[in-house]
Design a protein around this nucleic acid. Sequence first.
DNA 1: TATGAATGAGTGTTCATTCAT
DNA 2: AATGAATGAACACTCATTCAT
Lengths: 210, 210, 210, 210
Amino acid sequence: MTQAMTRPRSAEATKARILGAAKQEFARLGFAGARVDEIAEKAQANKRMIYHYFGSKEMLFQLVLEEAYLDIRSAEQALKLDDLPPLDALEKLVTFTWQYYLDNPEFITLVNSANLHRAKHIAESTKLPASSQKLNQMVQDILDRGVKDGVFRPNVDALQLNITIAAVGYYYLTNRHTGAVLFERDYMDPQALDERLAFNVETILRLVRA
Amino acid sequence: MTQAMTRPRSAEATKARILGAAKQEFARLGFAGARVDEIAEKAQANKRMIYHYFGSKEMLFQLVLEEAYLDIRSAEQALKLDDLPPLDALEKLVTFTWQYYLDNPEFITLVNSANLHRAKHIAESTKLPASSQKLNQMVQDILDRGVKDGVFRPNVDALQLNITIAAVGYYYLTNRHTGAVLFERDYMDPQALDERLAFNVETILRLVRA
Amino acid sequence: MTQAMTRPRSAEATKARILGAAKQEFARLGFAGARVDEIAEKAQANKRMIYHYFGSKEMLFQLVLEEAYLDIRSAEQALKLDDLPPLDALEKLVTFTWQYYLDNPEFITLVNSANLHRAKHIAESTKLPASSQKLNQMVQDILDRGVKDGVFRPNVDALQLNITIAAVGYYYLTNRHTGAVLFERDYMDPQALDERLAFNVETILRLVRA
Amino acid sequence: MTQAMTRPRSAEATKARILGAAKQEFARLGFAGARVDEIAEKAQANKRMIYHYFGSKEMLFQLVLEEAYLDIRSAEQALKLDDLPPLDALEKLVTFTWQYYLDNPEFITLVNSANLHRAKHIAESTKLPASSQKLNQMVQDILDRGVKDGVFRPNVDALQLNITIAAVGYYYLTNRHTGAVLFERDYMDPQALDERLAFNVETILRLVRA
DNA sequence: TATGAATGAGTGTTCATTCAT
DNA sequence: AATGAATGAACACTCATTCAT
């Protein structure tokens, strides 16, 4: 009521609220589990608006996914790793990636859901390959600088490294619930998180060190 | 149907067919996306039988999950890593884990689905912690032997190592669809698979080597 | 359908149609026997609407029951029995009750169904005790006036009298089908109905007369 | 197991157990609400046996109903009311009827369920009209004797009296759950039961007294 | 720009009943 | 005489989506 009155009748604001709610719900329940009704309600919007602005649940998911990927890619670029010595740059990337997953837990479940559907929701995207290419290049540059400086060994594949940097953080976090049951530990305990990050930094640095 | 006529009226066989079909469907579409109707049809069974033997979709999922975990744990134990030198043992475990994921792609999506639901379907299991504990001990033994032999550095945490061994394979495979779009590569190309495995072995060995 | 096109898109009208159809079906087949599909169809509504407006079959039954009770209580209050001499008032109440059961046969089967479920569907209602209390008071007033006038004997319990007034009509009608088989009579023959009403009036008046 | 072993493999015993369990379940949940599975289990019998001995759920209900009616009719005959003075005989019948309903609560819900289905389950019965006729004759005899003795007024219809005797007890008990909610009383409180019986005796005696 | 009302096709689940031994 | 296995039709309930204003 009051909220509805003070809320600006702005198309952009409505779209943004819908996208935000959709990201939450898709992340929480997966694509199949999320409910259009619930998204509309959480967005303080009308269900009809979702179809007006996004066309379908699938297309809404597409946009949510694309936005999620562009967000992390953009945050990576903002790190300005080129200004750091190669070793520091790499450590910073590992740490950033880990922290990003911690701060944006939706990202992981969204990506999982996207892969369950065999990435069909982003298959048409052109922005995502472009931005990913930039990430790859960024790591390649760090590697090149490290090799030139003699601190990194040569012939480390940038893409494999990238994947591994993501993997060691992502896997720990996405599987934290089953992990907790299987190994009877609290994966999210602050000290446990610190230990994992340290382990991951060690893993990556040993992998590239000359 | 002819099949229906020749199919034996055996509770165990029917249960097994249902479990098999359920594993397929849960893996293919996630828990929420899988359809009880479809599972029944694929199992050449009646929907009623699913409820007769398993009680509910949720309990069916529980059993599928538990079975999936016990299968990999049992395969790991069958490796007889104790009979190998520590370095060989570790390499064999990395290779086995990778190959197991490749041969049993359902495992990964099942685990993802379990985690989306915050592991509630295995929370009550007692078999799983027990078998996981054995895996951990197995790796701990390898590490201990390696340290004693002077080939491994000391103070490598067995659980972290375990997680990392899984992570470097699991992540690559679970995210192969989005990865293919983002990085415009065929993650499943045989050569790409070989390269990834080699990279992973390198990662793990560098991590523990003295 | 033409009907569908001319039918106004009004929430209140739809709710009312659903309630009406539900009353019919619950009365005809009992709570367990009634079918949500059938109710929707008879209401010229969509099954989804039932869940939208009423939440569940059980809650729909609750509303139907509450409405049924409030209707008869309201009709009783409309009799203005206070304006009649006590004897006439009592006779009018007996006659009214009998006629109400005849005119609203759903009432009886609804109440039977409610009692089969041990009244759980109205257990939370606050309106019903209030309106019943008013009925009781109404009869108490008639009794008091009759005693004061010397036409009624003292110490007749109002609630017991109320129950008996209902009983002598209700039982005859609810058990008319088995009664017809057992005693090989047509319980609904107009003359039989008249005779029963006369008998009931006699029963009640003899019970209270001084 | 053990029970199954000690239980005699007797067709009659099995049928009796099934009938007993069916009476319970039909009484508890109505015809539509009762479950064949549950009846079989409660009878410690096999579901197949129900179909073997009774043919269908409907025919099982028929037998249960018929048995229930024959039981009360037989108990009424056992009262030997002919040996009592008419007033005592009538009072004893009222009291017996009340007590029978209290002791056999299934009877009431079975009859309600039979009537919900418009008595189709007993429509073919020939035993029931015959035994009901005997009940009617019994009351007629009491009335005749009472009139001859000058304690009863003439021209009281035996069937109407019969119905009323049943009504004043039956209604109170079948509607005890809704009654408890509406009038906020415990209908089954021992003192409440005594008061109701006394009220009913008074009602019937005043009705026939000369 | 926005919304409440409405819907058809499904979704997990349950049922009375029959088959095979 | 008895039973476990199996089934199709139906059940209450839910969903993404469209209509009417």
